[in-house]
Design a protein around this nucleic acid. Structure first.
Lengths: 219, 219
DNA sequence: AGGAAATGTCACCAGTCGGTGATATTTTTT
DNA sequence: AAAAAATATCACCGACTGGTGACATTTCCT
């Protein structure tokens, strides 16, 4: 999101300059707002233009329609994501495979919890996948995957355990927790509103992970 | 569906009998088909009437609009659900709390897996909750809860564990597994298509549950 | 100056949506 | 038989959707 530049008297490209870039940013911001509020239900040409306070024609010209706009937002989100993940990576690297999974679970939980748009994308992918959800999900998955394998380094998984299946289930649980909390402030009877609620959830999650991979050190 | 009956010369109620009941069933069936195929995206008056091959006015007259139809479908689904749950309950009751959670996890997984409509309802509740999703979700939750507590009987939870949080996470994982499989035939890299895939997933799930509650007997 | 390209705005299209009144048809009751 | 009630169907409404062509304005490049 590095945007406020330009204003040199000479144009860089065949750009004319009336508001071009600022307009574009307004549109992207409006689209992201809608996305994080109501998901893809209101993610349409008319709705976005109305919210951005401009004519919908501009969306066609600037972004070549909704799909193009989704592309831009996708990479936009991916960048934010990388920034957030940076914080997690800065800590010391996990020493064991079990510790890695713990960090994964806690990190993903924090990430999903803090980012409403990602929640919406994930939820809409499950409920009503479309070309738009796919575009955004692709960018997200790429960064997340890279972060996970990067954090893992050369740690080797314990033998005798189906780590692929176990981790898939754990990640699913994390994702579901965040989405359910966002929609209902609870999950299967467990309240998920206050910070205390979340600490309780995180403690339970950590317990599950530790027990699953055999109690280890870490964190 | 059991529909082809009637044709008694005398009417049952103040019903006139042209097609009344059969029509109603056709409409409900059409609505359920749409629901299990595309979720609530196409769950509208026009779409349902078109699919049922009748005029949309009938939906207003028979069911008092979409909400009324959703009511009927809700109890409809709840009944199917009770029937499926019957099968699980018939087995011998779990002897320990851990065994109960295992049965819960496996049972819910099978249930969610087999019932596309329930998947759609759950997914749409997360993505875009509405009065319609709420109506259907209520009926579902009621039966499921009754089944869970009934199966549990008087088993007392182990001390020192936050069973509420642990179970909420486990149930979330199960639910997410079913939804993700339905949408992508996979979850976080784990393929979920063939029966072998599912056995692998179930084995991992059981491992997690057993380790979480301390390895026990059962099944 | 010019012309050309880019930009912003408006009006309009066809299609769908939920919803409703009027009407024709059938069945039951009187 | 005639009257009344229920049933089925059609035509229509206003509101919204995604999408496009036309036009006026501004800016740039000769």
């Amino acid at each position: 999101m590095d945007l406020m530049n330009e204003d040199h008297p000479e144009a860089k490209a065949p750009g004319r300059q009336r508001d071009r870039v600022a307009r574009g940013q307004t549109i992207v911001a409006a689209a992201k707002d809608i996305l994080s509020e109501s998901g893809f239900a209101d993610f349409g040409i008319n709705s976005i233009a109305r919210r951005a306070g401009c004519d919908k024609q501009l969306i066609y010209r600037y972004f070549d329609g909704l799909e193009g706009l989704a592309d831009v937002i996708g990479t936009d989100i991916a960048d934010e994501l990388s920034a957030e993940l940076e914080g997690f990576t800065r800590q010391e690297a996990p020493k064991t495979y079990a510790a890695w999974v713990e960090r994964l679970a806690v990190g993903l939980l924090a990430l999903f919890r803090s980012n409403r748009i990602i929640q919406k994308i994930a939820a809409w992918e499950l409920a009503s996948p479309s070309s738009l959800t796919a575009i955004m999900a692709a960018a997200r998955a790429k960064r997340l995957n890279a972060w996970m394998v990067g954090l893992r380094g050369t740690l080797k998984p314990p033998e005798g355990l189906d780590t692929g299946a176990l981790n898939a289930i754990i990640i699913g649980a994390v994702q579901h927790l965040a989405m359910s909390a966002s929609a209902f402030q609870s999950q299967a009877g467990m309240q998920l509103e206050t910070e205390a609620d979340w600490q309780r959830a995180e403690a339970a999650l950590l317990h599950i992970v530790r027990q699953t991979y055999g109690a280890t050190d870490a964190s």
